[in-house]
Amino acid sequence: MKSILASAAVLALSASAALAQDVIRMGTEGAYPPYNFINDAGELDGFEIELGNELCERAELNCEWVSNEWDSIIPNLVSSNYDTIMAGMSITDERDEVIDFTQDYYPPTESAYVALSEDADFEAGVVAAQAATIQAGHVAESEAALLEYANPEETVAAVRNGEADAVFADYDFLKPIVDASGGELMFVGDPVPLGGGIGMGLRESDDELQTTFDEAITSMKEDGTLNEMLVKWFGDEIGQY
């Protein structure tokens, strides 16, 4: 499932022959603001797109973006339809058995519950989550009844229209939605630390590419550009490196 949506390919400036010829295809979902989404112009945009382009520039790689449904994002990576995943994917043990991750470019995340009122029963009520995410796994193990939707948008809609008592998702995905709701939606309960930060997913056989991107991420962490980007997309409260 290779698909569309080329966003600007980053031009490789170097003549590092072998690598410059090859295009590194970067897979993302395009439905998870502010990490990655499709902007008004119909192009991929977001924190990970900006970060990925910068990483490719530092690593002197020629990169091209591809969007893919979340459900099949890992099978398509391992069958070589693209070479990396940057889609707000938390580093977990199960995923790590199948693919490799770079070091995290986004600090370990907290997930949070959002509901329509303070006294919503998020512990034993109905909780919506996106299918096949670590959040869905967490809710399935809790006392609450899990209600699964195919995309993150629908999980929030489920709370709005009363299908679910609360939605459980990544804090930084929920925050802009709560801010924009004008008091309709609110965070309830304490945030839950889940997952080991967000990293770039790669095939296990692609050690060389993993090292390259690891170095690029390290250099961005060292000179503070990664922190600037995090603040730009997620606001001042975001954890920094």
């Binding site: 499932m1 569309i4 989404f37 945009d45 977001g46 969007s67 995309n151 948008e153 809609a157 939605i177």
Partner: peptide
């Protein structure tokens, strides 16, 4: 994996927050 009318209808129809 083809971005068809259903894909875009879902993408466009979903709630949009002013930040993005």
């Amino acid at each position: 994996g083809v971005e068809d009318i259903v894909y875009w209808a879902r993408e466009l129809g979903g709630t949009k927050t002013p930040q993005f």
